[in-house]
């Protein structure tokens, strides 16, 4: 198939999925028994009379039918207006922008760290297959795969913040300090534990995948023949193993954006790290519908971008797809 056509098809699919996510999440949120007016007013609910209630409802368009509301909301979205967050009293897009910088730093660090470490662990395990180090790596991966991410965060807090006192217990910046006075070192100190927690969890998939792929490659006919030609040791593994498995591993890492985001939600909550994840939890718990919807759409886009990048890499790097393009 021609490359542009392939992209067009992908794009249409993405657009249709995104639209469906919008509909689905809008009507789910609409069904919620959580009273959006109470969410807006917060603790002052007792002092709000029925007239004020109606006014607020009118202001948010809550007096209309769901379909009308959806039309209203979605046409605003198309214009780039995601509404105003009820808890932050700011445009949703601004909230997301502010918070995303924090989350992006966290996820990027964890993404790179877990990718590199996971890849290395996978290679070591595969090359030393069935040795004690392979067993150790497998044990680590299988154990971690069965461990809730937030519990790892709690453990690290117990050890490094409470027990040893090396690192602060929470918050992206020290409490009670003005934003301008926060130093880079403060930020880094508050960043280390969340990033490590997220990386520890992220290592598992890459490591197990890399291990299996490399074992498959090492048992392949072409490695057999390479050995018959006298290739051996690290050069053999590099030329035929690592070069061939790096691409699938990278693809896997890109396709794992969804899990990365989910992990970030939990880790940010444990460490009171002021990112998107915490905003999602807040929005969910306190019924901030516009923010929740904005975050669902944003996280979906985030996953899409990951998948798209994964596809792109294959198209650009794999010689076999280049050939398809030429035909």
């Amino acid at each position: 198939m021609l490359l542009p056509l392939l992209f067009l098809k992908k794009f249409i699919r993405l657009a249709s999925l995104l639209f469906a996510v919008c509909i689905l999440s809008f009507f789910l949120v609409n069904k919620s028994p959580v009273d959006p007016i109470q969410a807006y007013v917060g603790a002052d609910m007792m002092r709000v009379g029925p007239e004020q209630r109606e006014k607020i409802a009118e202001h948010w368009g809550l007096d209309k039918t769901p379909v009308e509301q959806f039309y209203h909301w979605s046409s605003a979205i198309v214009r780039g207006d995601f509404g105003t967050s009820m808890i932050y009293r700011q445009p949703v897009l601004d909230v997301i922008k502010d918070k995303f910088i924090y989350s992006f730093a966290l996820m990027l660090a964890a993404w790179i760290l877990s990718g590199v470490i996971g890849f290395l662990l996978g290679i070591i395990a595969a090359v030393k297959r069935d040795s004690w180090i392979d067993r150790l790596i497998k044990l680590y991966c299988y154990t971690l795969a069965s461990t809730p991410a937030f519990w790892i965060g709690i453990l690290l807090l117990l050890i490094f913040a409470v027990g040893l006192g090396w690192l602060p217990i929470g918050l992206g910046v020290p409490a009670g300090v003005l934003t301008e006075e926060v130093t880079v070192i403060d930020r880094v100190r508050h960043f280390i534990l969340p990033a490590i927690t997220l990386s520890i969890v992220g290592v598992v998939n890459v490591a197990l995948h890399t291990r299996q792929k490399l074992i498959d490659v090492l048992q392949s006919d072409y490695v057999l023949f390479a050995r018959a030609r006298g290739e051996k040791g690290f050069s053999l593994i590099w030329r035929h193993g690592i070069r061939n498995i790096a691409l699938p591993a990278l693809t896997l890492q890109f396709a794992a954006f969804g899990e990365l985001f989910g992990g970030a939600v939990l880790v940010e909550l444990v460490f009171s790290y002021p990112g998107l994840g915490q905003a999602t939890v807040e929005a969910g718990l306190r019924g901030d519908v516009p923010l929740l919807l904005g975050l669902v759409i944003f996280s979906t886009l985030f996953v899409f971008i990951g998948n798209l990048l994964a596809d792109l890499i294959y198209l650009v790097v794999d010689p076999r797809t280049k050939e398809r393009e030429a035909i």
Binding site: L17, L18, V21, S25, L28, V29, S32, V34, F257, G258, E259, F261, G262, V265, L266, T280, V281, G284, G287, L292, L295, V296, S299, T300, F302, V303, F304, N307
Partner: peptide, 13 residues
């Protein structure tokens, strides 16, 4: 296409 946890939160909500 929606992160698992976010979808869960949405449905739970």
């Amino acid at each position: 296409s929606v992160p698992h946890l976010v979808m869960l939160m949405l449905i739970s909500f």
